[in-house]
């Protein structure tokens, strides 16, 4: 009898201890511990798919890894890369690609969003029509553009011939300059809808009263756009500009499907160069060095992004 009672007391004590141990709100430390426990699976997953490959890439960049061999070579890959004649041109081309494409996407996105936000007839239909370039898989869209750019069967060459602007069939992707700008056009076509939709959403969040107040005060349409719409959508605009810059910087499929970086390297951006070196030429070590440099450049971008977002929010936000 006594033994039974002791057992029960002991069992109750253990249950209480266990409950206290698993209860997450019994103090700051255990709250924090509980938070860590909740985050752990996601953190482990991120480590596995982001951190580990990144570290492995950094390690590879210090080797001459190729098929079957792998030796430590110190900074040799970086030295070779920075001393090569082609590399600065590739970096320059990448930035030109990025600024031109992002600039066009932003301008067209802003115009598109303004038109879609305006009280025009049939705007619902236009809102739907804006979406396809974004919704269609990039590869499918690019194959469509491949046909459009084709000299013999493509509609662009055909129309230009009909109009008498060009004499004969013109292969847009066969010449250095036209291939580069053709790739830009395709990239802009694919990237603009998303910017349009995000800017449109930002514009629709601007209270109507603000425009009415400005209208009553005599502000013209342009003045209202400049002093109300732009400041109000600026946080979204800056976010879209920088995210789009990062995506465009890393844009691979469009160039690869259209030109594979050619002709004669005219559309080879950093990411295409990295792929060609590492995967097409099996120079994993040198490819890894390029990838690490891309990470470094994008890290600078990220820092710039966070700084700019903070600054814009302070300038255009509700508080000082």
């Amino acid at each position: 009898m006594i033994s039974n009672k002791t057992n029960q007391t002991q069992r109750n004590y253990l249950v209480r201890q266990f409950m206290a141990w698993i209860r997450p709100t019994s103090g700051i430390n255990s709250t924090r511990l509980f938070a860590w426990v909740l985050i752990a699976p996601a953190a482990a997953y991120m480590c596995l798919i982001v951190a580990w490959p990144l570290l492995e890439t950094v390690r590879l960049s210090f080797t001459n890894a190729g098929i079957g061999s792998e030796e430590y070579v110190g900074w040799a890959n970086y030295e070779k890369l920075l001393n090569s004649r082609k590399f600065p041109a590739t970096v320059g081309r990448t930035f030109y690609w990025m600024f031109l494409s992002v600039g066009l996407k932003l301008i067209l996105g802003l115009i598109g969003a303004s038109l879609l936000a305006a009280n025009l007839k049939g705007k619902a239909a236009f809102r739907v029509l804006v979406m396809p370039p974004w919704i269609v898989p990039i590869a499918i869209g690019c194959i469509g553009w491949l046909w459009l750019y084709n000299g013999h069967f493509g509609i662009i060459s055909g129309v230009l011939q009909q109009l008498g602007i060009i004499d004969g069939p013109f292969e847009f992707l066969a010449y250095k300059r036209s291939a580069f700008y053709s790739a830009i056009v395709t990239d802009v076509w694919i990237g603009t809808p998303m910017i349009t939709i995000f800017l449109l959403a930002a514009m629709q969040n601007v209270p109507r009263d603000l425009y009415e107040a400005a209208y009553v005060d005599g502000a013209s349409r342009w003045y209202r756009f400049r002093r109300i719409t732009m400041p109000q959508i600026m946080p979204t605009f800056v976010s879209m500009a920088l995210l789009s810059a990062i995506w465009t910087f890393n844009s691979f499929e469009i160039i690869w499907i259209l030109t594979e970086g050619g002709p004669r390297g005219a559309t080879t951006t950093l990411i295409v160069d990295t792929y060609k070196t590492a995967i097409a030429n099996y120079k994993y070590g040198q490819g890894a060095a390029r990838a690490v440099l891309i990470v470094a450049i994008l890290t600078v971008f990220m820092v710039l992004y966070l700084w700019l977002v903070k600054k814009v929010n302070r300038k255009f936000g509700d508080n000082k």
Binding site: P207, D209, E212, A213, V216, D217, Q232, K315, D318
Partner: peptide, 13 residues
């Protein structure tokens, strides 16, 4: 005329 709105319609930025 000038108008004061229900929501004040102040420019937040």
């Amino acid at each position: 005329i000038s108008m004061v709105f229900q929501s004040y319609a102040l420019y937040p930025h």
